[in-house]
Design a protein around this nucleic acid. Structure first.
Lengths: 170, 170
DNA sequence: TCAATGTGCTTCGAGTTCGAAGCACTTCCA
DNA sequence: TGGAAGTGCTTCGAACTCGAAGCACATTGA
């Protein structure tokens, strides 16, 4: 089933190529479509929606800055910028963590919750229309399983954020 | 198998959610990893690599600006910017089309071809390591099929570039 | 034929993104 | 205990991205 570890392949099989191209294409098109919907309805960028969604998902609606950045695969400085925008719009608040004086916890406000609620149905509808409408239940199940493995693999391989300040060169 | 067209779903099934989250996560992580590899080896951004790859794929190594932009799901002004960068680095040339005086055809230079050749093996290796190593042949096959359907669906739904200058508001 | 409309590309300005550098706090360990 | 190293976040500058507006050529149709 799995390829052995020590063969260095110089090319991809046609099927792998198809899978890769289809993946990138779906990724681009889906993202653009979703982005437009989010902007039209809630005036949110995709990143902002992701941030609010993660906050909405958190048990107490609070997440540390770094965890937010890692969660959406985003630079820390970029997150600072976006968090400022969201705070100015009153959708989140930022306050120092009681546990660690360095940390900032971002909290969803009531306004933030209602914006999230306003955007969500359209977001779901778009996903149905653009993605799931073309897929059978079996397909969706397979997709979740396969991409789950891929995500595990990707997460296992590289430390993404919080990388050491100066990298040891071997 | 397929959902009927007229039920407006208010939420996603847990499996759909898992599929969607796994998809976005793989998309982000894979893109970041690939981006880093491309920048380290060839000094190329992901977009630039996509552009060169498309040119390398074209029968005569020539593609119109608009077709390039549509191919990589990119704004036209953004493409103008990137094409200038690539031209300054000598990887492509831009020349007016003989057919249509307005069109510009972008052509891969020998230098562009060799940069592409230098980057490709590492790109393939990264895909194997990050993505395909975790997937069986059957998985890859399923992935290609399922995402192929999804891409068809997405392409069928919205015209992306070359949208009318002023939209008819119904 | 020639105005009206459409298409291909670029310029421009505003907003976004990132990494490097820097500051503040925390942890480690001799 | 106290300096060194690590971690969390922000600031800064440079690069990138997009949409709107504009120019030039092409197509349409009266």
């Amino acid at each position: 089933m799995m390829k052995s570890m020590d063969d260095l392949p110089l090319s991809l099989t046609p099927t792998q190529l198809r899978a890769y191209f289809a993946f990138t294409e779906v990724s681009s098109l889906l993202r653009h479509a979703v982005e437009q919907q989010l902007r039209d309805v809630g005036g949110l960028s995709y990143v902002q929606f992701q941030l609010l969604a993660r906050l909405g998902d958190a048990p107490d609606g609070q997440v540390r800055m770094t965890d937010l950045a890692d969660g959406v695969v985003y630079s820390r400085s970029g997150l600072t910028y976006q968090a400022q925008l969201l705070e100015q719009r009153g959708l989140v608040t930022r306050s120092p963590s009681p546990d660690d004086e360095r940390s900032i916890v971002v909290t969803l406000t009531d306004e933030g919750i209602s914006v999230l609620a306003a955007v969500f149905p359209g977001h779901i509808e778009a996903l149905h229309r653009l993605l799931f409408a073309a897929l059978s239940d079996t397909d969706v199940n397979d997709l979740a399983r396969i991409l789950g493995h891929a995500a595990d693999q990707l997460r296992a391989t590289p430390p993404r954020s919080a990388s050491p300040r100066r990298r040891k060169t071997s």
